[in-house]
Amino acid sequence: MHMRCLVVSLASSWRDRSLALGAMLALFAAHSAGARADGPFTLTSANVRGGGTVQSAQVFDQNDCKGGNHSPQLTWRNAPAGTRGFAITMFDEDAPGRGWWHWAVAGIPATVDSLPENASSSGFLQKLGAVEARNDFDTDGYGGPCPPPGKPHRYIITVYALNSDKLRLAQGRPALMFDHEIGTAAIGSARLVVNYGR
Rank of each mutant, 00 (worst) to 15 (best):
Y155K: 02
T89Q: 12
S189K: 14
G39L: 05
H102W: 05
T44I: 04
A37S: 08
G123C: 09
A119V: 06
G85Q: 01
D179R: 15
F137L: 04
R168H: 13
A57K: 10
T75M: 06
I187S: 07
K127R: 15
G123R: 08
T139Y: 10
G52W: 00
V131M: 11
E132L: 10
R198Y: 09
V159E: 02
R98N: 11
D165I: 03
V59M: 12
P40F: 04
I157T: 13
L43M: 03
R134N: 10
T139V: 13
A119D: 09
I182E: 03
T42M: 05
R15S: 11
G123P: 10
R98W: 08
G143I: 02
T184M: 12
G172Q: 06
I88R: 00
V193R: 01
F178V: 03
C5Q: 08
G52Q: 01
L169K: 02
T158L: 06
P148Q: 05
Y160G: 03
G51P: 03
A23N: 12
T44V: 09
R198H: 13
P174M: 15
P116D: 05
V193N: 01
F60C: 03
Y155I: 01
Y142L: 02
W14M: 15
P116G: 06
H31S: 13
S164H: 10
K151Y: 03
G67C: 12
A106I: 02
F137D: 09
D94E: 06
T111S: 15
A26F: 11
R84E: 04
S32N: 04
Q73S: 15
G99I: 10
E93L: 07
D16F: 14
N78E: 09
C65W: 09
L10C: 15
Y160W: 08
E117T: 14
R15C: 13
N195A: 07
D61F: 06
V159C: 07
I157M: 12
A33W: 09
A130T: 00
G183Q: 09
V48T: 01
V131C: 10
V54K: 02
F178S: 12
E93I: 11
L27G: 02
T158P: 04
